[in-house]
Amino acid sequence: MQGKVALVTGASSGFGAHFCRQLAARGAAVVACARRVERLQALVAEIEAAGGRAIAVAMDVTDRSSIEAGFDAAEQRFGTVTVIANNAGVAQTKAALEIDEADWDYVMDANLKAVFAVAQSGARRMVAAAVAGSIVNVASILGLAVGPGLSSYAISKAGVVQLTKALALEFGRANIRVNALCPGYFVTEMNQAFFASEKGQAYIKTTPARRTGQMDEMTAPFMLLASDAGSFINGVALPVDGGHLLGAL
């Protein structure tokens, strides 16, 4: 990743923070983006203490002007962004009959519309600078299958999978690869209360791996898609789920 400039959304916790650490450890200049700037600043301090390069950028991915300002800040400090980890998103557990318009917009704006906006903005800048790049969208196994009470989330992530394929087809001509990671269940800030509960523990025991994923088990799949190691991989939706998709969700 030497010489790469990587922008990561949703970088204040979970996969986003992990991706920032891994990218920086491999030589990329990292632009950590999220709304919770104080957390980003602590992450940047950690990366710099380990000898890496990073900046913290306040970004609301549901606001186009905020996205553009984030890319501007990245370019001013490090140059054109060539790797994007499109990770920001929200979750919602609600029966389909109970979802109102505000619920629907909340999920779709953060999980689908924002992914397109970040990818489009980054790709436009790569094309203008005539540089190759890689975009990794974080979808979910729920973008490939469905489970009860998760309809809006599953629909948004299925949209990310199809978005990934559509952008890969178009952006590939400009030497910009677009792929998606489809994580199974990893413990993050978003779901840790559920997986600490008796119900959550019982659910995990029904999966083929009988456990949640460890954060480091996402490192190699992410780095494959983000780096030149995956230079001939474009338009894939890669499950990282311990075989969860082989059974019922």
Rank of each mutant, 00 (worst) to 15 (best):
residue 90 V to H: 01
residue 69 A to Q: 15
residue 75 E to C: 05
residue 73 A to K: 13
residue 59 M to V: 15
residue 26 R to M: 04
residue 102 A to E: 15
residue 89 G to Y: 01
residue 144 L to F: 06
residue 112 L to H: 05
residue 183 P to I: 06
residue 88 A to E: 10
residue 130 A to T: 09
residue 4 K to D: 13
residue 1 M to H: 11
residue 165 K to A: 12
residue 161 V to A: 11
residue 224 L to N: 12
residue 173 R to P: 00
residue 142 L to N: 14
residue 135 I to Y: 06
residue 24 A to S: 14
residue 139 A to I: 03
residue 111 N to Q: 12
residue 90 V to C: 09
residue 200 G to I: 02
residue 160 V to R: 02
residue 85 A to Y: 09
residue 49 A to N: 10
residue 199 K to R: 15
residue 18 H to A: 15
residue 186 F to G: 03
residue 13 S to P: 05
residue 110 A to L: 08
residue 117 A to W: 00
residue 245 L to P: 08
residue 95 A to S: 09
residue 49 A to V: 04
residue 165 K to L: 03
residue 139 A to W: 00
residue 211 R to K: 10
residue 64 R to D: 06
residue 152 S to R: 01
residue 232 F to I: 14
residue 16 G to F: 07
residue 74 A to R: 05
residue 218 M to T: 01
residue 145 A to Y: 02
residue 199 K to S: 12
residue 76 Q to L: 04
residue 169 L to F: 14
residue 140 S to P: 11
residue 242 G to H: 09
residue 125 R to F: 01
residue 202 A to C: 04
residue 86 N to A: 15
residue 119 A to H: 01
residue 115 V to W: 00
residue 155 I to N: 05
residue 123 A to E: 02
residue 112 L to G: 07
residue 117 A to P: 00
residue 166 A to I: 04
residue 155 I to D: 03
residue 15 F to T: 04
residue 132 A to G: 05
residue 223 M to N: 02
residue 180 A to T: 03
residue 208 P to N: 11
residue 202 A to G: 12
residue 51 G to M: 04
residue 4 K to T: 11
residue 233 I to T: 15
residue 39 R to H: 10
residue 167 L to Q: 13
residue 206 T to M: 02
residue 169 L to A: 14
residue 9 T to Y: 01
residue 65 S to E: 15
residue 65 S to T: 13
residue 197 S to Q: 07
residue 107 V to I: 13
residue 36 R to G: 07
residue 16 G to D: 05
residue 183 P to R: 07
residue 54 A to W: 01
residue 197 S to I: 02
residue 114 A to K: 01
residue 121 S to A: 15
residue 33 C to R: 00
residue 178 V to Y: 06
residue 68 E to N: 12
residue 68 E to V: 11
residue 246 L to A: 13
residue 108 M to I: 13
residue 64 R to L: 07
